[in-house]
Structure formats: structure tokens, C-alpha cells
Design a protein around this nucleic acid. Structure first.
Length: 669
RNA sequence: GCCGGCGUGGCGCAAUUGGCAGCGCAUCCGACUUGUAAUCGGAAGGUUCGGGGUUCGAGUCCCCGCGCCGGCUCCA
């Protein structure tokens, strides 16, 4: 047999190997059990791939990101096999790996019940134990159609092959752009257990799935469109080891512990009374303090940065939203109108037609009216109108989620009107302002997203879009932050930058948006007189920093896991007497702190001191100030922090100074 | 909006096949006065989300509505 030369690439470097013709990739990695696939050139291949002369081959380990994706994809196959064995009528949708797991969609006559999922999982364990081999074979389109007559969704995918724009996300996992392949799952005796149209690659055998679990079921529309059939989706996850799976499940528990809906109740911050209706929150006194601090600080910063404060009503006549275009474009997202002032006579004939009023879904139309309230000069620009504006949006019931997605919310909304010449500088300053302010609230890990024109849905000339997009891109890159493109993601009226923040456990949240608008200045016919006396149209920028305050409260609650930095903490100091005789001493201390504007409480309940500490701890109060005989004798007080760290016998003057300073500096403790 | 799950004192949960609605925390009262995460005793607290139905009997089964949760779709 003729020899072939291949290059094996590894962390240690690359080495040339001479192998006989017909050698399979796995033979290169026979003593590396963690290798489950091969990267040949740029392509991921099964380990059964037959090497060719000149190949550059790298082992893909199961704990790498590609390796995990392959593991999860293979586990999805095992799940689909188990489902079809248990539910012979189930038709296959798609089953791709996703971030931290996988799913597979099925068309089944009855949705899966929780018990079904357990059965599927145990069937999967059986299949894994059997050590079935994933065996790839290439097929022509015609052959694939012939073999898959019982799988209508797969047939549809074959028809869409290579047309990435039309197929669902994840569908290209089934049918690559090139030739089709089918994976046979073969039992030890070589008999066929199951097969699926799939691009691969896969693990060598099902035995190589070290740890998996099924997570949940859900419905999902075929190819992501609500016009299509709804399929039943099962989510699962798979990991390279039991330990990695446990660590993942542990991370989920940690995230659940931070859930703002749970913390909101535990810390008595806010609630969603059923009586109000879906997506409508009330803030309790403690949540009110938090929110007020956030708002007050934002107000101060806006004042310093040249914003003018305005106010506008929650409800307006329909005409305004006709002018703005909201009723034409977004009526579905608005609460239905209330019809007022109609007069009907005894016969039922309309004497006076009355009119519709709408709750406002956005503040911008009102701000445009303020701009238009009198003639504007170039000397007025940039004009920055700011409002904590409460808006109401009739979000679909299924999308509501705690404070993060609500129907009634308060935006920290500003609209900036400026000339074209001012636009570039204004955007640059704005982005800096936004990022600085977010940092002050404790978020410091950002990236940006630039949403550009949707070719099918936009107004304004290409030239203006081009120019504006270019400007946003320049400003974004000047920030030094990572910039991700979001092609086609812009609203119809202009491109935008959105600021994404990563929280303390690495989750990302969309925070601020800076949105250019070519539409509203037209619709409201906004003008200013330029220095040469000509009439010009201003450019408008929409921006919200928090997005909505409600949502920002939710995000910060999760970011801090409820342990807010002292300047935001609803109760900043809890004073705990060792015994009852120390209470009055602490009241004196508390009065001093209160005089400095510190939110302090003295716990004079008849609980034991240990219990008081526990209570303060569970309420995540940043400073516990404890006083007993020793402290009183020394005119001192003892600190305990949420971390459990103690600092005893601190002189009272120093203690007050320490607390005041931390609050003033907005630092975390 | 769609699919599935769920709804029991303020909170977290229990209640066998349809058979006396219970526990812990919190609350209130009393005793105790203790140096860094739960002192002891007692009391009070319920139209089992709302409405309708089946049944001798419904927290439990059926229907409608409201709300919540997980997804899908949407997110100006």
C-alpha cells in the first residue's frame, strides 16, 4: 500500500506522520481517549474519516467548544432515536447543539408530558449503554428523499439545502451546503437501530456520551415562524464529565438564587399583584428607596450633562400617534384605545362622534411637540430633552417576565435634537456618558452592537443611512469596546448602537440604546433656522440608558444577587445591640448617621443578637454595627459585613466616617 | 398570541384512591438579656386564584376566566 503523509497538529506543535493508505483519523489518536473528532483543514470530521495525502489533522477533544457541540449534537440524536422508539408516530424536526445544550423538535400527536420525558431519558441511557456506532454515509438528494419519505420535515430541509437565508436557525446542522449525508446508528451486531439526515460530525459511538440530562419541554414553531406548525421541543444538555454537568446544574441554581423575582419578594422590593394585571409592578418602600436612588443619581448626571427636564402625559388623542406613525406600524403593541366624549341620542344615532385616546407606548412624539412649540434656532441645538416617562405597551402575554419584560414601565428617555454637523460629536459624547453612568451603577463589562438597515423595511435615502451608520461605527470603535454587527437589525427609521452589559455571572443584558431617527423630524416637520437664515431639519437621537427603570432594577438585583452597594441598599446600616442595655447607645449612633443622610435602623426586637445578625444577613444589609459593653466603654462600635468579615472596636467617629465615605464614593463593600 | 406545566394563611411547602386543610418561617403576646447566621412557650392567621359543573362528598375530577412559570413568536 502506498504511504501517505499527514500533518498532525496539537498544542505541542505540528508533526508529520507517514501512514498507510486507508488509515482512519482515529488511528492517530488511539491513545487519546478525550479526542472524539478530528479537524481536517478547516472541516470537522468523524474519527472514522479516511485520511488523504497532505491532510492537516487536529484532534478535537470532548471538552473543547467544538467537542462539546459534537457531543451535544450526538446526544440530540440519541434523544430523537429514543423518542421515535417510544413514540413511533413522532416526525423529526431539527436537532442542533446550542449554547450549553441541545434540543430536538418533534411533530407528535400529543405534547410530551413530564413522565414521557423521564421515559425518554431512561431509553436514552439504554441506547448509550448499547454503544451504538454513528456511521456516516453520503447520499444523493434523490436517495435521501427516497429514504426519508416518512419524514416530511427532513424532506422540506432537503428542498431548502444551501439556502441559508430561508432555512431555520440550526437547520444547516442537518443539511450542509454540500452533499447530503445520513448517519446510521448501528448496534454491536451491525444491525441498523436508527438513522437521521445529518451533516455531522458525531461521536464514534453512543458510549462516548459521559453525562447528559433532559431539561424541559416546550413548543416551537417549525422553522421559527408562527405561521407554521407548532412542534414539540425537548431541551437537554450534555457534558464531557459528570463533574462538568454538575457544575453546569450548579450554575443554573446560582442563577435561580439571583432571580430578581425571587429576591424582589424576599427583600420586599416589589411585587406584581394579580389585581393589577399582567406585567404591572408596584414598588414597595424598600424597592422604592432603591429606585429613587437610581433615579436621583441619573437626574443629577443628566443635569450636569446639559439635559433639560420635561414632563408629558400618559395618555393622548389618537392623532398624535397617527402623526408619529405608531398607529400605522405598531398598533398591535399598544393598549387598545378608550373612546370618550361620544354623544348618542335616544334613537342610537351619533350626535357627536367622540374620539380615541391611547396610552403612550413611547415618549418621543410628546418631545417632538415640545421641540415644535415655538420656532427653533441653531443656537438652541443640541437640545436634549429628558424625561422619566412612563409608557405602556401591550406586550404579548407569553413574553412577560418579571421586571425584565413588563407592560407598564418608566423609561429614562431622552431625545436629542441636533444639526447634522453636531451629530458626530454628540454621538461620541453620548456614548461616553452612557458607559460612564452604567459603570457608576456597577456594570463594567460591555460590548456594543451596531444594528444596520433592514433592506426590506426602512425609510430615508441610502445615502443618509450610509452616512449615519458610518458615524455610529466610528463612535463605537472610538470607545475601544468590542463591536458586533447586527445586519438588518435596525428599526425602519434609523440605525442604532446598543450597549450590552455582562453581569457578575457572565450573562448579557441589553442595556442602553442610541438610536438615530430620520423619520420623526419629517413627520413632525421639525425645523430650525440656521445661521444663514435657511430652514433646516434637525437630526433626532433617541436614547434610554436603563432601557426601563423597572428592568434596570431587575438587572441590578440579579447582578448584585440582592447585595446592593451601600449607596443603593434600601437599608444601609442595621445597628445591633448585644443586650437590651446597649440600645440607647446605638440610637445615639444612628442619629449621627441619619444626620449624614444614612439609612439606618436599630434592631430593638427581643430576638437574640445572633438572630438579629442572621436577619440582617438574609436582608443583605451592607453594614451591621454591633455594640456591647466593650464598645460602649471604648466609645466604639463593631462592624460586621455581609461577607462575615468583622472589624471590632472601631471608634464611633471613624465608623461614621467610614460608612459615609463608602456611600459617597458609591463603592461596594 | 401559541404549546405545556402550575396556582393551598404574608412567604416556602404538605395533604394516600375524591373523605376532619396541616407544617416551617414571618406576625402578635409572654418569658429570657446572651459578642458575630435561627432562645423558649403560647396565640392568631384559610371562600385551597375566581366562576360554573360532576358527586352523598371536591384542594383533588371536568369546563370557562384570571394570574404565574418554561419555551416559541415578538420586542418600535
Amino acid at each position: 500500500m502506498p504511504d501517505q503523509h499527514v500533518v498532525v497538529v496539537s498544542a505541542a506543535g505540528s508533526a508529520e506522520h507517514t501512514v498507510t493508505s486507508g488509515t482512519k483519523a482515529w488511528e492517530l489518536f488511539a491513545d487519546e481517549p478525550e479526542v472524539i473528532a478530528a479537524r481536517v483543514g478547516d472541516e470537522l470530521r468523524d474519527l472514522s474519516y479516511q485520511l488523504e495525502d497532505g491532510d492537516r489533522v487536529e484532534g478535537v477533544t470532548i471538552d473543547s467548544s467544538d467537542g462539546r457541540a459534537i457531543l451535544r449534537h450526538s446526544t440530540a440524536h440519541v434523544m430523537a432515536q429514543a423518542v421515535q422508539e417510544l413514540f413511533p408516530k413522532a416526525k423529526l424536526g431539527i436537532g442542533p447543539p446550542i449554547e450549553e445544550g441541545f434540543y430536538y423538535d418533534f411533530d407528535v400527536p400529543e405534547p410530551f408530558k413530564p413522565e414521557d420525558v423521564e421515559r425518554i431519558e431512561s431509553r436514552m441511557r439504554k441506547i448509550i449503554k448499547e454503544g451504538q456506532r454513528f456511521s456516516r454515509r453520503q447520499v444523493s438528494d434523490a436517495e435521501a428523499r427516497d429514504e426519508l419519505t416518512a419524514e416530511p420535515y427532513k424532506l422540506e430541509l432537503i428542498g431548502l439545502k444551501g439556502d441559508a437565508g430561508k432555512s431555520a436557525e440550526g437547520a444547516n446542522v442537518e443539511v450542509g451546503a454540500g452533499a447530503l449525508s445520513i448517519y446510521d446508528n448501528l448496534r454491536r451486531d451491525g444491525s441498523l437501530a436508527w438513522k437521521d439526515l445529518c451533516r455531522g460530525p458525531h461521536l464514534p459511538t453512543t458510549k462516548r456520551i459521559p453525562a447528559f440530562t433532559l431539561m424541559r419541554t416546550a413548543a416551537a414553531y417549525w422553522r421559527g415562524s408562527e405561521k407554521n406548525q407548532q412542534l414539540q421541543r425537548i431541551y437537554g444538555t450534555a457534558w464531557e464529565s459528570k463533574e462538568a454537568l454538575d457544575a453546569y446544574l450548579h450554575r443554573l441554581e446560582e442563577a435561580a438564587r439571583r432571580d430578581h423575582r425571587r429576591l424582589g419578594a424576599e427583600l420586599d422590593l416589589f411585587s406584581f399583584p394579580d389585581e393589577l394585571g399582567s406585567g404591572l409592578a408596584v414598588f414597595h418602600p424598600k424597592g422604592g428607596v432603591l429606585r429613587k436612588e437610581m433615579e436621583d443619581y441619573a437626574r443629577r448626571r443628566h443635569e450636569e450633562s446639559g439635559y433639560d427636564f420635561v414632563y408629558s402625559p400618559h395618555i393622548t388623542k389618537a392623532g398624535l400617534f397617527e402623526t408619529s406613525g405608531h398607529l400605522q406600524w405598531y398598533a398591535d403593541g399598544m393598549y387598545p384605545p378608550m373612546h370618550v366624549d361620544a354623544v348618542v341620542d335616544d334613537e342610537g344615532a351619533v350626535v357627536k362622534p367622540g374620539q380615541d385616546y391611547y396610552l403612550k407606548p413611547m415618549n418621543c412624539p410628546m418631545h417632538c411637540l415640545i421641540y415644535r412649540s415655538h420656532g427653533r434656532s441653531y443656537r438652541d441645538l443640541p437640545m436634549r430633552l429628558f424625561e422619566f416617562g412612563s409608557v405602556y405597551r401591550y406586550e404579548k402575554s407569553g413574553t412577560l417576565h418579571g421586571l425584565v419584560r413588563v407592560r407598564g414601565m418608566t423609561q429614562d428617555d431622552a431625545h436629542i435634537y441636533c444639526s447634522r454637523e453636531q451629530l458626530h460629536d454628540e454621538l461620541g459624547e453620548l456614548l461616553t456618558f452612557v458607559l460612564d453612568l452604567l459603570r457608576d451603577y456597577g456594570l463594567d463589562d460591555f460590548y456594543l452592537e451596531l444594528s444596520t438597515k433592514d433592506p426590506d423595511k426602512h425609510i430615508g435615502s441610502d445615502e443618509v443611512w450610509e452616512q449615519a451608520t458610518q458615524m455610529l461605527a466610528e463612535v463605537a470603535s472610538a470607545s475601544g469596546l468590542e463591536l458586533l454587527p447586527d445586519p438588518g437589525g435596525a428599526a425602519f427609521y434609523g440605525p442604532k448602537i446598543s450597549v450590552q452589559a455582562r453581569d457578575a455571572i457572565g450573562r448579557t443584558w441589553q442595556m442602553s440604546t442610541i438610536q438615530l431617527d430620520f423619520n420623526l423630524p419629517e413627520r413632525f416637520d421639525l425645523e430650525y433656522t440656521a445661521s444663514d437664515g435657511s430652514r433646516q431639519r434637525p437630526v433626532m437621537i433617541h436614547r434610554a440608558l436603563f432601557g426601563a427603570i423597572e428592568r434596570f432594577v431587575g438587572v441590578l438585583t440579579e447582578h448584585y444577587a440582592g447585595a446592593f452597594p451601600p449607596w443603593l441598599a434600601p437599608v444601609q446600616v442595621i445597628a445591633i445591640p448585644v443586650a437590651e442595655r446597649h440600645v440607647s447607645y446605638l440610637h445615639t449612633l444612628a442619629a449621627r448617621l441619619r444626620a449624614e443622610g444614612i439609612r439606618v435602623e436599630v434592631d430593638e426586637s427581643d430576638d437574640r443578637m445572633q438572630k438579629k445578625i442572621r436577619t440582617a444577613q438574609t436582608q443583605k444589609v451592607p453594614f451591621m454595627l454591633i455594640a456591647g459593653d466593650r464598645d460602649v466603654a471604648e466609645d466604639a462600635v463593631s462592624f460586621r459585613y455581609r461577607s462575615g468579615v468583622q472589624d471590632n472596636s472601631v471608634p464611633v467617629d471613624d465608623a461614621v466616617e467610614r460608612v459615609v465615605e463608602v456611600v459617597r464614593q458609591r463603592t461596594q463593600v
